[in-house]
């Protein structure tokens, strides 16, 4: 499993079995996500890095084999179709941290499992600073992993395998560095390495998904790599009427993003009371559902946030 820094949790532990990949990725794109989406399967993992809604990097790791970008996206579609279990998580980062995470996933290995005691750590830090590296310094032992995230040579955060979020204090990482057998990896990217590409324009996920699902008409569409220039004109997903599962997943994702992990429980409960997702086609049932969700949300979020959530849910329900 990838150990990536955890930013602001936007979606946590969403069951992959319920996920409609094209819609989910559209939401991350339209929501202008800066952060990462992680697919955690039983025997593999996939991480997607977004910068303001642009899919800038994909890394799939299975059986110690890594696939990147377009290949990784294709592998991801196959994996979702083949596997029923697994979870989907999305974390938002600041731009600075996001680039350090990008370095962790696709950066050049400046140091590769170097023993920490063999390194002049002070010199290394000066080098990172002087060369204005955007990088992640990973300190590992058999038991623990700590990370220091850099943007243009400046420290932008710390993370370790026990943390729930990116921290501003180096205490825990320093502690890991003192453990016997600690090794250091340094992954760095230069300038705007990879930041200009948008993989979602290069790979037609919707076609790949439909083909993998067995839609013979969609499968006959080219499920290949588009040239970025052509893609903008050609990759326009056809207007589709979302099915009820997709709408339900979307509503849960909205509630999760607005209210935290209780959002899903709240939506599940109120959908049960309303008589299921399809019952929301009835205007009065939808109003009752929204009122019930709003009533409980008052103890979890601000009035503005609740209003935004209410509007977003209403828009999703319109797709039914």
């Amino acid at each position: 499993m990838f150990l990536l820094p955890k930013g602001k949790p936007l979606v946590e532990n969403f069951p992959i079995a319920k996920l409609q990949l094209p819609e989910a990725l559209d939401k991350l794109k339209n929501g202008k996500l800066t952060g990462c989406a992680i697919f955690d399967f039983p025997a593999s993992d996939c991480a997607l890095i977004y910068e303001e809604g642009k899919l800038i990097s994909v890394l799939m790791r299975r059986n110690k084999i890594e696939e990147r970008d377009a290949d990784a996206l294709r592998a991801l579609v196959d994996q979702i179709i083949l596997t029923d279990s697994g979870s989907f998580n999305v974390y938002g980062f600041t731009k600075e941290v996001n680039q350090a995470v990008l370095a962790l996933l696709r950066g050049v290995k400046v140091l590769d499992r170097q023993e920490l005691k063999m390194i002049d750590f002070k010199n290394l830090r000066e080098r990172i600073k002087n060369e204005r590296m955007t990088a992640t310094l990973k300190i590992s032992t058999d038991q623990s992993v700590g990370m220091i995230l850099y943007r243009d040579g400046e420290t932008v955060g710390f993370f370790d395998d026990t943390a729930d979020a990116i921290e501003s204090s180096p205490a825990r990482v320093q502690q890991i560095a003192t453990l016997p057998g600690a090794t250091v990896d340094l992954m760095a990217i230069r300038g705007s390495d990879g930041l200009n590409q948008d993989l979602s324009l290069q790979v037609n996920i919707r076609s790949l998904w439909a083909a993998a699902k067995g839609d013979v008409f969609a499968a006959s569409e080219p499920a290949n790599i588009f040239q970025p220039q052509a893609a903008a004109a050609t990759v326009q997903p056809p207007p589709v009427t979302a099915n009820s599962t997709e709408v339900e997943s979307a509503i849960i994702a909205i509630a999760n993003a607005s209210l935290g992990k209780l959002g899903k429980t709240l939506v599940d409960k109120e959908l049960l009371n309303a008589g299921g997702i399809k019952a929301l086609k009835d205007e009065s049932k939808l109003r009752d559902f929204l009122n019930a969700v709003e009533k409980s949300s008052i103890l979890l979020a601000s009035a503005n946030k609740i209003k935004e959530m209410r509007n977003a849910i209403s828009l999703e329900v319109e797709k039914l």
Binding site: G260, L300, A301
Partner: peptide, 9 residues
């Protein structure tokens, strides 16, 4: 612990 992730937590 229960409301972790919500704005008010």
């Amino acid at each position: 612990h229960e409301i972790k992730g919500s704005p008010i937590a």
